[in-house]
Structure formats: C-alpha cells, structure tokens
C-alpha cells in the first residue's frame, strides 16, 4: 500500500478517480453533522457561517500553496516545463470536466456549515438529541 511514488501515471489516475467518484451522497455523508448541540459562539448564525467559511478557505489556500510549492520545486529540479506555457494553457474536454468537478468539491468543503444547517433543518435532529442528552444527564444526576 502507498508504494506508488507521487507522479507515476497510476497514482495520478487514482487521484483523479477519487475526485470524480465523489458523488453527492458521499459529500453529504462526509459533511454530516456530529450528533449533539452545536454551540453558537458569535452574535448571529450568519457570523458562524462566515467564520466557518473563512476557516475552510484558509485551509484550502494553505493546501494550494503547499501543492504549488511542491510543483514548483519539482519543475525547477527536473527542468521539465517552460513556465510561460502555464499562461496559455487551454484544457481539453476531459481535463475541463475533471477541473469543474474539483471546483464543486472545493465549494462543498468551504460551504460545509451551510450544508449542515440544511441537514439540521430538514432532519429536525437537534431538539430530539438534546432531549435525549438531557434525559441521560437527569438520569445520571438523580
């Protein structure tokens, strides 16, 4: 497991397959709420969402920078790419589809908290969970 070096054709293909296999159901499952009341830290729910988005964006920016750094170091090391080519690159249809899918995944990651509010609103899970929790606590305190 994990014996493939990054950059081998198989590893590259595998990675793309992972991105493209990310169905809506799977994204829903990845972004699932943890059972239990989520505290509100800020004045409004809207601020909570903005905070979550900012944190996720910071994460993804850090990830992109790390990837770009890897890429630049490898490119420099191997002398394989004429850097100005990047400016004139135009993806073919397959590459375009893969890139658009990756965009969707990025957006779902950043917008997690909004998705979770939708899940919570549609499942009405929270009040029941809180009641259960209260019951457990009352029971234990008795």
């Amino acid at each position: 497991m994990g014996a493939e070096q990054p950059g081998t054709p198989t590893a590259h293909k595998k990675q793309l397959a992972k991105v493209n296999d990310m169905s809506d159901d799977l994204n829903h499952l990845i972004n699932k709420n943890a059972k239990g009341r989520r505290p509100q830290f800020l004045n409004t729910k809207a601020e909570e969402h903005l905070m979550s988005m900012t944190m996720a964006l910071m994460q993804e920016l850090a990830v992109t920078r790390e990837r770009l750094d890897t890429l630049e170091r490898l490119v420099a090391q191997k002398g394989v790419l004429d850097l100005p080519e990047i400016e004139t690159y135009r993806p073919d249809a397959e590459a375009e589809a893969e890139r658009q899918t990756a965009q969707q995944k990025l957006i779902a990651t950043v917008m997690r908290s909004m998705e979770q509010e939708i899940h919570a609103l549609s499942e009405q899970e929270t009040p029941e969970v809180n009641q259960q929790l209260q019951a457990v606590n009352d029971d234990r305190a008795a």
């Binding site: 943890a34 989520r38 505290p39 830290f41 800020l42 979550s52 944190m55 996720a56 990651t109 997690r112």
Partner: peptide, 17 residues
Amino acid sequence: HSVWSAAKRNTMEQRQQ
C-alpha cells in the same frame, strides 16, 4: 474569546471533514 472558540470548534469539525 467568542472568535477564538468559534475558530477552535471549526478546526475540530475540519479535522473530521
């Protein structure tokens, strides 16, 4: 403290995601 807590809570949620 509110913003600190909100950020810390988010790191827990991000770690899970």
